[in-house]
């Protein structure tokens, strides 16, 4: 069942913000079922897709993520009844905002994945990783990622050495 390991020039960093009731359980099912999927994804578990503040995505990009996945329960299945409806509206506008700002919205993926859809999870992750790999590194925030204070420390160390 194991996949052939391929070596690529560029491995994208992908952040996933997921709902704990559906997508996280779905990913858990993928794990306990021994399914293979790209190891590029770093997951953060949140109570609901409605909890995913656009701030998280902005911060992820600012700190060097190449792509962001947001995922939660299908509409109508939310554990808190309506959280994912709010998430949907918020992301409709947030994507437009990022587009106007000049960031490729292909780098932001939104998907409904239920706790039973382990296969869908692996497919979404694999497809998105491939897409971001083709898009390449996300260079826009490069001079932001450098922490000016850390830079100062490094320079000081070099001078004293």
């Amino acid at each position: 069942m194991g996949k052939k390991i391929e070596i690529h020039d560029f491995e994208p960093k992908i952040m996933a913000f997921v709902c704990k009731w559906c997508t996280y359980s779905g990913a858990d099912l993928a794990g306990t079922s021994r399914m293979d999927y790209s190891p590029n994804v770093r997951m953060i578990r949140l109570p609901c897709s409605g909890r995913i503040d656009p701030q998280f995505m902005i911060k992820a990009f600012e700190q060097g993520a190449d792509g962001v996945i947001i995922s939660g329960c299908h509409p109508g299945d939310c554990h808190y009844n309506e959280g994912n409806y709010y998430a949907r509206r918020r992301n409709t506008t947030f994507r437009q905002l990022m587009d106007f700002h000049g960031i490729d919205i292909e780098r932001i993926e939104f998907s409904w994945i239920s706790a039973a859809e382990a296969i869908k999870w692996t497919e979404v992750i694999d497809a998105f990783t491939e897409k971001v790999r083709e898009l390449g590194r996300h260079p826009q925030y490069d001079d932001e990622i450098v922490d000016p204070y850390a830079q100062f420390l490094v320079q000081k160390d070099q001078e004293s050495a």
């Binding site: 701030q55 600012e62 947030f94 905002l97 700002h101």
Partner: peptide
């Protein structure tokens, strides 16, 4: 702080809060 870090973040957040 007044350096480049966080400038985008601030303006995007501000715009998002006012949607």
């Amino acid at each position: 702080a007044a350096h480049k870090k966080g400038v985008f973040s601030w303006h995007l957040t501000r715009a998002m809060h006012l949607v």
